[in-house]
Design a protein around this nucleic acid. Sequence first.
RNA 1: GUGUGAUUAGCUCAGCUGGUUAGAGCGCCUGACUGUGGCUCAGGAGGUCGGGGGUUCAAGUCCCCUAUCGCACCCCA
Length: 452
Amino acid sequence: MKISVHRAPGTRDFLPEEMALRRYVRKVIEETFELYGFQPLETPAFERLDVLTGKYGEEADRLIFKIMKRGEELEAAKLSGDLADLGLRYDLTVPLARVVAMNRGELTFPFKRYQIQPVWRAERQQKGRYREFVQCDVDIVGTTSLAADAEIIALTDHVLHRLGIPGYRIHLNHRKLLQAIAQAASIPDERFLEMCVTIDKADKIGLNGVWEELANKGFITEQIVRLKEMLSAPHDPNVALQHIQPFLEKLESGQIALRETTAFLSHLQDMNVPRERVSLTLHLARGLDYYTGPIFETLVETPRIGSITGGGRYDNLIGMFCGEAIPAVGTSLGIERIIEVMRELKLFGEISEGSARVLVAVFSPETENEALKIAAELRRAGVPTEVFLESNKKLGKQFAYADKKRIPYVIVAGPDEISQGVVTLKNLQTGEQKVVDRAQIIEELNQRFRLE
RNA sequence: GUGUGAUUAGCUCAGCUGGUUAGAGCGCCUGACUGUGGCUCAGGAGGUCGGGGGUUCAAGUCCCCUAUCGCACCCCA
């Protein structure tokens, strides 16, 4: 009987070819993080449900994968309706907050950590969105200094630059700026989040779409007109700041917001973040409730895939776990989307990582032992080597095998070579072939590898 | 949770208003090339058309049910 072979919806397998790309991107990211002094952290796939819920806003709680209680507890729970007590992590920020709260006596602050692990979301699959995907977070915990926020942006820029992503732009905004804007537009506090959610859609539905949707939601014309005036600012950070200044400088909250934004931008300049890579985008709001300060998101023009990084400052989240306010700022790099962009734009060169460098062909059953010996020597010398695992296949098959697996060199040791104490070494990329003394193989190969 | 489209060979798909033995490209296997991959050429294998029911002389094609996958909305990486 045949078992059905479907994957759970919204999940993926990563075959070796795909893994090579993923590992390459991950390596570049990790190296860059460490260049800035961040250290790795891992946390469990699942957490107690009370740790996860209530941190992201009501909407998101529904999207947490819940794990049912087990055994007797489950029977008891059927009466109360609380069937789950654990959940798969929804992001990496909340687990970080939990770790910091639990270890705050031991950690050295500011605590700079990065974390690259899968997260799970119980939503319907869509283009570029999965129910299981890898998130990659960097955060700085324990300082309110805006230099930390700026460092996160500098790091984001550095990673994307190193990966060779063209045309990305890091959009910045500040929650306090948004609050002051809402205040200046006479929007009451209780409609602030609703306003944020709507204006945040600007890249998707355009600013005109935003005005329309605000009107549909019952925002009055006067409020919309004020928002229009304020939000229709150019992208250049300093110009945008000048544009918004007259609207906000009379408000106390506005003054604070302007001062902090100015400081933030000036740090970015000092850290050499290229000016054309950043925008002050006043309609950027981001969905998550817990942001309190600067917020940011990176977009690429092609392909249109949504944001490839996103983050911000969240000074109150960790306090929810330990009662003591611990400020933090960080970002999440959408590794999956970054890979998708790189694939789409063909930015991956020939990555043959994961394949062996040499295939030792087996000429015939009689010479198999010699091939095995050669392979063992190569491996001992640190050369990634495959030996053909069947002894009765034609050489043509074996060369085709090496070609398909992108193994660049094939060594043949047939009866002629063995009797003369040599091997034939062929480079599949150039087609060049030469006879090498049996004792010289490793030296010959190492010389070639060094030249590549 | 709400809409919507699809399902035919290992993969990507064609198959017009129902009409005999269901096709193509790629991939795979064999050979030309009995010690050498990519290119070319010649052959070959591979499908109960997702599953079930119905209409009809006749169903891959029309109708109903079901399963699965995808896309859009909400929200987000």
